[in-house]
Each structure stands twice: as structure tokens, then as C-alpha cells.
Amino acid sequence: MKSSIIKRFKRDRIYLLLLVPLLLYYALFRYAPMFGIAVSFLDYNLFKGFWASDWVGLKHYNMFINNPDAWNIIRNTLVLGGLKLLFLYPAPIILAILFHEMRWKKYRRFVQTVSYMPFFLSSVVVSSILIMLLSPSTGWINQLIVSLGFEPIYFLQQSEWFRPIYIGSDIWQHVGFGTIIYLAALSSIDPQLYEAAKIDGAGRWKQTLHVTLPGIVPAMVIVFILQIGGILELSFDKAFLLGNTATLETSDIISTYVYRIGILGGSFSYAAAIDLSMAVISFLFIYSANKVSRRVGETSLW
């Protein structure tokens, strides 16, 4: 038995060798920095570094829990993340099925390409476009509203508008790119299934319901589990750029708070403690979603 492992090792040595750079990458850039989480248990001194800083245990964690703003910030993050999952998750599935049903290949390819483009714009650009478009004095959207005879709406100054704007622009930005994984899944559906369904008398709608959708369920489950983990990982830049003092009630999320306190205020340890607690919660989300999906269906991450 032992000799067979050595033999297999010898036989596959080239392939194993090819694995080395990737392992090195993960060790150096993914696992080594994880020791940084220790910062959250220290009174970190940037100059003295890791080893010379004082150990303070859970001080920073307690500080966050006892902060009266903490609940509001966590709630904002969860609500925004939840809404994002609710709207951003199904959008690419619907779009991908629509693409799939489209018969005019050239037009389809053109629309697909166009829908990918916003993905490559940075949030900074998207945010400044939004600020310009939504301005109540010079923005096109409000000029349209006014020309239709309504009062202009101060979108960015009203906290109830922050979430729709954030989610809406996120859909615009990511929906096209998100279809790629589903289109790949769709193309792997056996055409014979459609033929069989047609012979059985299924129309287009029934085919979609009973052939197309079940065909992409595994992809849907995987994407869902991945996105569940990302609920708390909202992009900092967009919340920071679109938010302002009028909308702090809804726009102050964990990442913007960490930025203010940790980066601007220089409390690295405190910021690390908040981030680490969020990472733990994210992990719990993924873990339970995976468990549920393994019990209910046969697809799971691990």
C-alpha cells in the first residue's frame, strides 16, 4: 500500500509540481495574513508591530457590543444584504433564461455583450453617474419628473431612497455578468430533453418550467450558497459614496463604520475585531445554508 502511494506520487510528480505555485500563493497571500486577526485581541502598535503590542483579550469586542450604534449598523448591513440577495440573486437567472429563449442569435449576442459592460465600471464611476443623474437641480431624472408635472425628488437626501438606489444600481451593474454561469449551465442541458418534452405536448412555457429550470438548479444552489456568505460583504465604496449625513440612518453599514473608526481614527484593533465578528457570522450563514441544501437536495459546496 505504501509503495503504491510512492509510486503514484512518482507517476504524477509533474502534475503535483504544477500545483506548487498555487499552493504557495494560497499559503503566502491567503493563509499567512490570517495571523493578522490576532490584531483584534491586541492594542496594536503600528510601529512596534505584532509581537511588542499589548494583549488585551476581548476588550475591542466588548467595546463594539456596548456601542449604542452597533445595533443600527448591523441592522443596516443585514437589511441591505438581505435585499441584495432577494433581488440580485434571481435577476441573472431570469435574464439568462430570456437569453436562452431568444432565437435571433446575432441580436442575442449583442445584447449579452452590452449587458456585461456595466460590470467593468468601478463603483466610483457608477456612484458619480448616479449622483449626477439623481440631482434635484441638474439631474436628468428629476428634469424628467418635473417636465411631467411632478415635484422633484431629493433621492440622495432621503434615507428611504438609499436602499432602492443601492440595490437598483447593483442589479444594473451585475445582472449581465451574473448570467454567464447560468448560460453555461443552460448550454449543457441535453437537447433531447426538449424534443421529448415537445413530443409529450409541452409548449414553450412548460418546457422552460420542466426542462430548463431543473437543468440549472445545481448552478442556482451553488450561487445561492456563495451569495449567502456575501450578505455581510457589501461593497464599501458604493455605500460610502452614495451615503451622506442625511441618510446615515440607513446607509451606515459595517464597512463604512470600520472605515471611519479604524482607518480614519487609527483604531486598527477595534476595526479588526468588528470585521472578524462579521466574518464569523458570514461563515455561519454559509455553513447552515450548505447543510440545508445537502439535506434537501443533492447539491452542496462540500
Binding site: N67, P68, Q157, T245, A246, L248, R260, I261, G265
Partner: peptide, 21 residues
């Protein structure tokens, strides 16, 4: 004061903005 400063900042900026609007 660092956390206190942030809390009061969040409060006053939000409220004063409301007053102005």
C-alpha cells in the same frame, strides 16, 4: 473619546441635516 466622537458626529450631522431640509 474616539468612539464617543463618532457617535455624536453621527447624531448631530443627521439631525442638523434634517433641520436644514
Amino acid at each position: 473619546v474616539s468612539v464617543l466622537n463618532d457617535q455624536i458626529w453621527k447624531f448631530w450631522t443627521g439631525e442638523v441635516t434634517k433641520f436644514i431640509f
